[in-house]
């Protein structure tokens, strides 16, 4: 464990908690893409299948449980409890256009063809694009609630910090996982224009609005 990965995991946890609290407190999931949340739940489910038979550390197991539980709780809030506030008119990204390429790519480029490894590789590729429905929804509505922009910033920052963690591990442990690094860089790049808008607008107290 290193400080970059710890900060990354904390950002990730903050993002998930912020989203849960936003929906719970405002009793509304307006502006939130349920499709992205479905993809995230799928990412954690396929990545953490080893939760029950590979023990890495207490921290690792606890965080996996938290990520799994919170992602399904978020789905419950969106599609069951506050279903009436779900903005399905704007959450229209075709996630099959993400799922199918990820399945194909994980069969073409993977470290190993064991089921657990294939699921892990699929989850890495899927996580890289899981935010697209949410970013697409924000671009369609042209704006996002400030709390939603904080959620997106924390979520983007988590994988950016993981890139620093991989650089650190490369030089200190000569550890490198090309699949995770390439997918992580793509994932972070997808947030780039959002980061720019967030820093130039939200941090100056303005609303998060895309330039018309």
């Amino acid at each position: 464990m290193n400080i970059f990965r710890l900060l990354g995991d904390i950002c990730h946890l903050v993002a998930i908690i912020v989203l849960l609290l936003k929906i719970w407190k405002t009793r509304s999931c307006a502006g939130i893409s349920g499709k992205s949340q479905i993809l995230f739940a799928l990412v954690y489910t396929t990545r953490y299948v080893d939760l029950f038979f590979t023990y890495v550390s207490l921290y690792n197991s606890v965080m996996k449980v938290i990520f799994l539980a919170s992602s399904y709780a978020t789905l419950y809030l969106i599609y069951v409890k506050f279903k009436a506030t779900y903005d399905f008119n704007h959450d229209t990204f075709r996630i099959e256009f993400l799922l199918i390429p990820c399945v194909i790519l994980s069969l073409l480029i993977t470290h190993d063809y064991s089921p657990v490894e294939l699921l892990w590789t699929f989850s890495i590729y899927l996580e890289a694009v899981a935010i697209l429905p949410q970013l697409f929804m924000v671009s369609k509505t042209g704006e996002a609630e400030t709390i939603t922009s904080h959620y997106l910033f924390a979520l983007g920052a988590y994988r950016a910090l993981y890139i620093v963690n991989w650089i650190y591990r490369y030089y200190t442990e000569s550890f490198i996982d090309g699949i995770a690094v390439v997918a992580g860089i793509i994932q972070t790049i997808l947030y780039a224009d959002f980061f720019y808008l967030y820093i130039t607008k939200v941090l100056k107290g303005k609303d998060f609005k895309l330039p018309a």
Partner: peptide, 10 residues
């Protein structure tokens, strides 16, 4: 392809 290694990252 690379040898397997323990996935210690989240």
């Amino acid at each position: 392809l690379k040898p397997k290694f323990i996935k210690d990252e989240l």
